[in-house]
């Protein structure tokens, strides 16, 4: 079920059209352009809504992605490194987003710090191939995960605030 909040989040992320994965050579380049266009627009929308919460970049081939995400809790900014590979079967299967530094700190993760997704994510993704891209995986997978898990990890003292030079 898509609730109002999800619907609103999704309206900020342009949909994609090319169904191609990393094995598809030229079509993958096309898809990659769409991924970047969609992500750029999503980040712009986040910024203008004062809800900027991640940055991503990829290797030249677009198969490995890395960056950071952050979560504001009690006016403090908690930042985490994000990484994932684009699976060969993308976009039929979604990327498995990982926060390696939290690996082993919460039960809501699989090996390597891959986040555990809700029961709703996979059906929703499967029904929206190839329209959903990396931005959607971030918004529907990582976003809700951070919102639930980070406050919990902070309250348990597993995650603590690190003073950082303001960027």
């Amino acid at each position: 079920m898509v609730d109002e909040g999800t619907r609103k989040t999704l309206s900020n992320i342009p949909l994609l059209t090319t169904k191609a994965g990393p094995r598809d050579k030229e079509l993958w380049i096309q898809r990659l352009k769409e991924e970047y266009q969609s992500l750029i627009k999503y980040v712009q929308n986040n910024k203008s809504a004062d809800n900027d919460w991640f940055r991503l970049e990829s290797n030249k081939e677009g198969t490995k992605w890395f960056g950071k995400c952050w979560y504001i809790h009690d006016l403090l900014k908690y930042e985490f490194a994000v990484e994932f590979d684009i699976p060969v079967t993308y976009p039929v299967t979604a990327p498995e987003i990982a926060l390696p530094e939290l690996d082993g700190k919460t039960a809501k993760m699989y090996r390597g710090g891959k986040i555990c997704l809700s029961d709703h994510f996979k059906p929703l993704w499967a029904r929206n191939v190839p329209k959903f891209g990396i931005g959607h995986a971030m918004a529907l997978g990582l976003g809700p995960w951070l919102a639930v898990e980070i406050p919990d990890l902070i309250s348990k003292g597993v995650v603590s605030y690190k003073e950082k030079a303001n960027s």
Binding site: T18, K19, K33, Q37, L39, L56, E57, A126, V129
Partner: peptide, 27 residues
């Protein structure tokens, strides 16, 4: 779960003029 509509053909997108390197740099 119930299947969504399937897309069998890869649709060409009319945005061929954008350059991937520029998009990467912009991001």
């Amino acid at each position: 779960y119930e299947e969504g509509p399937k897309v069998l053909r890869d649709e060409a997108n009319p945005q061929d003029d954008v350059n991937l390197d520029e998009l990467m740099a912009q991001m």
